[in-house]
């Protein structure tokens, strides 16, 4: 193979990559705000006793869980403007597409956590005279949030990685900048290796944090 490594081609052009990383981080944070808030609402809807509420919410969750994220993003970019005559700019569309996807997964995380609060704790709350609302606010939700945190963090970091998919619809994120840099410099190995390392450098500490939280929880719940 006649290819000598030249990292300088990438390091000399780090500016656009950093800009791309900043866009990626903005996408991730904004999608997580949507995912954390809307996901909680979805969890409540999915657990509703009213079928008219429960069925559409469940359908929403299953749609996002059972189709590839890249298809969701492409569909969102091309079909929503045509069907509904809405176009919000590529960044906003990217945030909404990723946010809805995350909301579906976080909804399941919240639901599982709420349902895993032991029945005995609900019983104890009743025995202590707490009303159903008080029991939900003071016992079930605080316990459930703590149980859900590791999964919510994991989902959040997955969205950080999935956000690379929006590059194909021209959001100038880290992956998009990497592609154009690789094309410009003819240095795909250096560029994509360094970009992979950047994604890794952000994700790895958070996944370590999740591991630490889970170990701590297994002690706390014992």
């Amino acid at each position: 193979m006649d290819y000598s490594l030249d990292l300088g081609a990438v390091t000399r052009n780090f500016g656009p990559l950093l800009e791309g990383l900043w866009v990626t981080i903005q996408l991730t944070l904004a999608a997580n705000v949507i995912g954390l808030v809307l996901g909680f609402v979805i969890a409540l809807l999915v657990m509703s006793r009213v079928a008219l509420i429960r069925v559409p919410a469940t359908a929403f969750v299953e749609f996002f869980r059972c189709t590839p994220a890249i298809v969701q993003i492409v569909w969102f970019f091309y079909c929503v403007p045509m069907l509904f005559n809405i176009y919000l700019g590529s960044m906003t569309m990217g945030i909404v597409a990723l946010g809805l996807n995350l909301a579906a997964f976080n909804g399941e995380a919240y639901r599982a956590a709420i349902q895993s609060v032991p029945r005995e704790h609900r019983d104890a709350a009743v025995a202590l005279g707490l009303s159903p609302l008080q029991s939900t606010l003071h016992i079930i939700l605080p316990t459930a949030f703590r149980l859900a945190i590791p999964v919510l963090l994991t989902n959040g970091i997955v969205i950080f990685q999935q956000s690379a998919l929006v590059a194909i619809v021209a959001v100038p994120d880290l992956m998009y900048e990497a592609k154009s840099l690789a094309t410009k410099t003819y240095r795909p190995i250096e560029t994509f290796t360094i970009v992979a390392l950047v994604y890794f450098a952000v994700s790895f500490p958070i996944s370590q944090l999740v591991g630490w939280l889970e170990r701590r929880r297994s002690v706390a719940m014992a």
Partner: peptide, 17 residues
């Protein structure tokens, strides 16, 4: 009336948080 009755359960029911 229920409030004048207290109960302790077999499984631990202290609220962990």
């Amino acid at each position: 009336v229920r409030r004048s009755i207290g109960m302790v359960f077999q499984h631990y029911t202290l609220f962990p948080h």
